[in-house]
């Protein structure tokens, strides 16, 4: 859709703002939770912002995504409303799911987000099905399907990728390999080097990129989206990245070292992109500071507005169990 983020001024601005917005949103969630102001559980995507942002930059508004338990970034990158997201997490009636879904079930029809998922790999067959519908109706639309390294060991992954391959469905499978499925490392859970190698088993292209490099992610996903639009079928793109925070709120980080975390913090995808665009002169230092400020202000406004909204109402809990004709 857009010109390469690393070479086009407006795209770079948009990409950087998106990444900072995700970062600030996740930090706010972390903070609200730590202060006991938010309940439930959260899976934060700090450190993985380039993956969500680069991939969604390659999509049009009417393209769809399916997301995961670690889905705030995908949701924001696809264009969701921050206040409605925050309101959902804060258990408000104005939240995306009226407090029925929470962090793991946010969807947004307006931006083609078919939903996060609390079930590892649950969204992968759903993505194939949405792509099947687009293809049957001859609509020029693509589905980007996000999932983790852990999900690639679920049967759902294999069944869905095969279906998409045999039917040449317009879907891009995006594996966010952040090195762990909870505590279990990819070294232990895979006997192959790169998860993208699995593409060969289904007769589709597979590629592994540096998931902390926005331009690389954008390039790989764009190529896959073009292929999907051309009717040539799915691609498996593996974004190698890392989550800075624990898996969820219960994580004591017993399975990885401080050094490893520090090493990956040094590969901060946002600072890397910032440095690149400043160096090339695409964005000035001043512009970068303005973007940072805007992300912070947007997040604060979202928290403020969400906090002021009415709490989710328990009076009609049976209301949405069934859809009405």
């Amino acid at each position: 859709m857009s010109a390469t983020p690393g070479t086009d001024h407006d795209t770079a601005r948009h990409a950087l703002l998106t990444m900072w917005t995700i970062r600030r949103f996740e930090e706010a969630v972390d903070d609200l939770f730590a202060r006991g102001l938010m309940h439930g559980t959260m899976h934060l995507s700090i450190g993985q912002e380039a993956s969500a942002t680069g991939a969604c930059l390659a999509l049009r508004t009417d393209d769809a995504i399916t997301s995961t338990h670690r889905g705030h970034g995908h949701c924001i990158a696809k264009g969701a409303d921050l206040t409605r997201m925050m309101a959902e997490l804060l258990a408000k009636e104005t939240g995306y799911c009226r407090g029925r879904g929470g962090s793991m079930h946010i969807a947004d029809t307006a931006t083609g987000n078919l939903g996060a998922n609390g079930i590892v790999a649950g969204g992968i067959p759903i993505a194939a099905g949405a792509a099947l519908a687009f293809k049957m109706r001859a609509e020029d639309r693509v589905v980007a399907c996000f999932f983790g390294d852990g999900a690639a060991n679920e049967g759902a992954f294999h069944e869905a990728v095969n279906l998409a391959a045999i039917w040449k469905l317009p879907v891009v499978f995006i594996c966010e390999n952040n090195k762990y499925g909870m505590s279990f490392s990819t070294e232990k859970s895979f006997a192959i080097e790169n998860i993208s190698e699995r593409a060969a088993a289904y007769g589709i292209p597979g590629t592994t990129v540096d998931g902390n490099d926005l331009d690389e992610v954008y390039g790989a996903v764009s190529a896959a989206v073009d292929r999907a639009r051309a009717g040539e079928g799915p691609t498996l793109v593996e974004n190698v990245t890392y989550r800075w925070k624990g898996h969820s709120k219960s994580d004591k980080n017993l399975y990885r070292t401080k050094e490893e975390i520090a090493e990956w913090r040094a590969k901060d995808p946002i600072l890397r992109f910032e440095a690149r665009v400043k160096e090339s002169g695409l964005l000035t230092e001043e512009e970068v500071q303005l973007i940072r400020t805007q992300a912070m202000e947007d997040m604060r406004a979202a928290v403020r507005e969400a906090n002021a909204a009415p709490d989710a109402d328990p009076s009609d809990l049976l209301d949405a169990v069934f859809a009405r004709a």
């Binding site: 993505a127 099905g129 519908a133 759902a156 069944e159 279906l163």
Partner: peptide, 14 residues
Amino acid sequence: LGIVGAAVGAALVG
């Protein structure tokens, strides 16, 4: 699992 999931996805988009 794949085909029921595909049905869910197709149903979601109409």
